[in-house]
Nucleic acid binder design. Sequence first.
DNA 1: ATGTCAGGAATTTCCTGA
Length: 267
Amino acid sequence: MKIATYNVNGIGGRLPVLLRWLALAKPDILCLQELKAPQEKFPENAIRDAGYDVIWHGESRWNGVAILSRVGDIHETRRGLPGDPADEQSRYIEAAVGGILIACIYLPNGNPWPGQKFEYKLKWMARLDAHLKALFDLEAPVIVCGDYNVIPADLDVYKPENWTKDALFAPEARAAYQGYLDQGWTDAIRTLHPGARIYSFWAYWRRSFERGAGIRIDHLLLNTAARKRLSAAGVDTRPRGWERSSDHAPAWIELADRPVRGRKARP
DNA sequence: ATGTCAGGAATTTCCTGA
C-alpha cells in the first residue's frame, strides 16, 4: 500500500497537476495540505471522478487539509488538533482507512521568528506532542504525515547557514520534532535513507529546484505497527518540475501487507 | 537583501502568507 503526503499550495490552481500526479503515481492514500480553499470550493467531484473517496477541512484563503483514498471508505476520526478549542485554523484531519489510522497535518510555518506566529507554532507542536502520545500505543498502524514545517537536521537542508534565522530550522522547533522521535515515532524517509540528501520543498525563486537548493520538511511518522510494515520511502520529485507546480513535492511510503523481516527500530 | 507564487479584495493593483 502506497501512502503519500503532498502540500499542493492551493487546490484550485493545482488541480491539473494533482490529477496528473494521481494518474501517474496512483497512491492508495494521499494527504493534502494548503488547500487554500473554503469548504464549499473543494473540487470534490474531480477527485471522486479520479477514483478516490475524500474528506477535507477547508478554510478561506489559507491552510486546509484533506485525505484521499482509493482503498476503501474513509472514516473520519478527528477534525482539528485537540488542546485548544479556540484554534480555528484548518490544520489537522484524521481518519481510519484501509486498516490504518492516518493523520494529515499542516504544521504552522512560524515565521517570522521570533514573534507571535512562532509562539503559535510551538504551542501547536506541544499540542501535537500530547496527541501523538495518545496515538503511538494503538495496535493498528498509525501514520502521522504532512507538512511539518520543520527541517530536522543539517542533512535536510541545502545550505544550513542560510536558514539559521528561519522558524523552520529554529532550535526549539527542531527539538520539538526530535521529541516526537523520542516518543518512538519513526521518520520513514530518514530511517530507510540514513545518509541521503532528500528534499521535499524548493522555493519558487532563484531557480531553487534546478539548483537542488531544497529542504526536507514533509514527513511521515510511523508508530511501531506501521514501522514493521515499512518497505520503501522517498520523495517523488517529478511533479516539482511540471508547469504550475507546487513548491513542494509528494513524499511517500510503501507498507507491505505483513511485517517486513529485519525492520527494527532505529538505535 | 533578493526572489516567486496563490488567493482574496477590490478593479487593475495591492495585500498577506509562505
